[in-house]
């Protein structure tokens, strides 16, 4: 590694990696097709909305160390969102910031799970457990996409999501196996989160078209592995998948721009600065 001199002190020169995965690729895949752009928008919106939620924990987590852990996970997700929204924007000449700050609620394509409120710490962990188990399977498969940009983004993201999954699993085990109070809260959190699971695994015409050309991953194809991963955690934590009255399934319409009442306030907070000062940079 080369060295740089600062008076008597030498520091290793840092080689900065590219911030937007896949953005440096040229040729096929550097400009998204309309279908690929819509698909990237879905994945990018999932990541950005969840990142914004996790950012709300900063200064509010149970301990300083957990503040940093949730913040780090949020930053990983912002990295995924930037790459995905940048790619989505290539189809229509929009930047990642155009897509993040200048779309209104009906134009957002995230699934309902990601916009659900943080709740208590157990609710955030339950949402993280579901989200990261799903994203891990998704990005693992998407790394083999015939679209080189999506493949590059997924290959980077899967390593980070692997850690997010570990973080959520560790906390699920500890909350479920901790005190009566922590276990009670974990069970409530899982029941409250479960209605939003099914939407993640719904196929539609867009993914079927893209899957035929090897670009996208069919969400339904991930369900079996997701269930197996969740069951393994629940077995160890002595938890059960909700059944009966608590097994309600939400009719998630996030992929088509229909959202729960929770997304609007999140977007308002995220977008207010960019909209008050258009074009501002710092």
């Amino acid at each position: 590694m080369s060295e740089q001199t600062h008076g008597d002190v030498t520091v290793d020169r840092v080689e900065l990696a590219e911030e937007l995965a896949g953005a440096g690729l040229t040729g096929t895949g550097s400009t998204a097709s309309p279908d690929a752009a819509e698909y990237a928008l879905r994945l990018g919106d999932d990541a950005l909305v969840l990142a914004q939620r996790l950012g709300m924990w900063i200064t509010r987590a149970p301990e300083l160390e957990e503040d940093v852990a949730l913040g780090n996970i949020g930053l990983d997700l912002i990295g995924h969102a930037r790459s995905l929204l940048h790619y989505a924007g290539t189809a229509t000449g929009r930047t990642e910031d155009d897509l993040a700050y200048w779309r209104d609620e009906p134009e957002w394509r995230n699934a309902w799970l990601f916009e659900q409120p943080n709740g208590d710490f157990a609710h955030t962990i339950a949402r993280q457990l579901v989200a990261s188990a799903y994203l891990f399977e998704l990005y693992g498969d998407l790394a083999d996409s015939t679209d080189p940009t999506l493949a590059a983004i997924a290959a980077k993201a899967v390593k980070e999501v692997d850690y997010h999954r570990d973080h959520a699993v560790q906390w699920t085990l500890r909350l479920a196996g901790g005190t009566d109070e922590s276990r009670r809260r974990m069970i409530v959190a899982i029941a409250d989160t479960w209605p939003y699971v099914d939407e993640l695994f719904e196929d539609d015409e867009l993914v079927e078209r893209l899957e035929a050309s090897g670009v996208a991953v069919r969400p339904s194809s991930l369900r079996e592995r997701f269930d197996a991963a969740i069951d393994a955690v629940f077995d160890e934590a002595r938890l059960e998948r909700p059944t009966g009255r608590t097994a309600f399934i939400a009719a998630g319409r996030g992929r088509h721009g229909g959202h729960t009442e929770h997304l609007g306030p999140l977007l308002a907070e995220m977008q207010v600065l960019a909209r008050q000062h258009p074009g501002a940079s710092w």
Binding site: E65, E66, V68, A69, N72, D166, H167, Q170, R174
Partner: peptide, 8 residues
Amino acid sequence: MAVRNARD
């Protein structure tokens, strides 16, 4: 968890 926090 200490190893994980240290990583972060």
